[in-house]
């Protein structure tokens, strides 16, 4: 009298939860390889360390500095310089989370488990973003406070309450997150660790230096829009004419990140794994 219920399979299961499952898996993946920890530690050491080092050098040589040099000091100056040297390391993490899978072949195993590539890449990006946002905030605030602690020995310190400083320090964490995401895009596009790291290094480090050599008004405008210059505008408490307004700069960098991720997604879906 009763009909046999139609056979059910796992894929007839409710849709909801699948993205959550992919997120959970990606979280497991990122926390169970040591490269995540070591890369974040390296980034923290370099950014916090350079901030401390520069603050030490500045306070030590303060008495010999010209008034102009003394006036150049702002509350976030040590961390700005530290970011310039250390931000690439957060990009390396973004590269590694995907190229590590290509290098080992894990990508094929992983895509067999999650064949929906948009879902796969989205989950990877979300988990990476959250991890680097948390780590980046810690690093950004730590590098600020360490720098201030050293500068305050000469009564040169500022505080989070100074105009624009809280925004600059918190924005630094967001900037590091965006760097990791852009690097993820580069890693997906190139699929090789070394090549991707070189590209991220060029985008964030070399281009910023090249921008400084561009001649004339035109050159100055272009320089503002170069990735590292645009992104690090958020670190300026009181931005001058030489950089974009902080949120505009960060938005420009976010746009570059979005372009890299969009290109990555298109290639990722088209290509054979």
């Amino acid at each position: 009298m009763s009909h046999a219920s139609p056979p059910t399979t796992a894929s007839d299961a409710p849709r909801h939860g699948t993205f959550g499952q992919t997120l959970t898996a990606e979280w497991t993946k990122i926390r169970t390889v040591r490269s995540t920890f070591w890369t974040l530690l390296a980034g923290a050491v370099v950014v916090i360390g350079f901030s401390a080092l520069w603050a030490l050098l500045f306070t030590a040589s303060y008495d010999q500095l010209s008034p102009a040099d003394r006036a150049s000091l702002g509350p976030t100056t040590p961390m700005q310089i530290a970011f310039y040297f250390g931000m690439v390391i957060f990009g390396v993490l973004g590269v590694l989370v995907i190229t590590g899978e290509y290098a080992t072949g894990m990508i094929r195993t992983a895509l067999t488990a999650v064949p929906n590539r948009a879902r796969y890449l989205a989950a990877k990006a979300v988990v990476l973003a959250l991890v680097v946002l948390v780590a980046g905030m810690v690093v950004s605030f730590a590098s600020f406070f360490v720098g201030q602690a050293i500068l305050s020995t000469k009564d040169l310190g500022g505080s989070l309450g100074d105009p624009g400083v809280l925004r600059a320090v918190a924005g630094g964490g967001v900037f590091l997150m965006l760097i990791a995401l852009m690097a993820l895009g580069v890693g997906v596009i190139l699929r090789h660790t070394a090549g991707s790291v070189v590209v991220v290094f060029v985008l964030l480090f070399v281009l910023g230096i090249v921008g400084g050599f561009l001649p004339g008004e035109w050159g100055a405008t272009v320089a503002k829009y170069l990735p590292s210059n645009a992104g690090s505008a958020i670190l300026e408490p009181q931005p001058g004419d030489s950089v974009l307004p902080p949120w505009t700069g960060l938005a420009v960098f976010a746009l570059y990140t979005a372009v890299a991720l969009a290109a990555a997604l298109v290639l990722f879906q088209e290509r054979d794994a």
């Binding site: 796992a10 499952q21 898996a25 993946k29 490269s35 072949g105």
Partner: peptide
């Protein structure tokens, strides 16, 4: 060999399991 070299066998299987509920 298509496994991340730094991840343990248990965690490798765990992430695959989690991705499929």
């Amino acid at each position: 060999k298509a496994v991340h070299g730094g991840r343990s066998a248990y965690h490798h299987l765990l992430c695959l399991a989690q991705s499929n509920g």
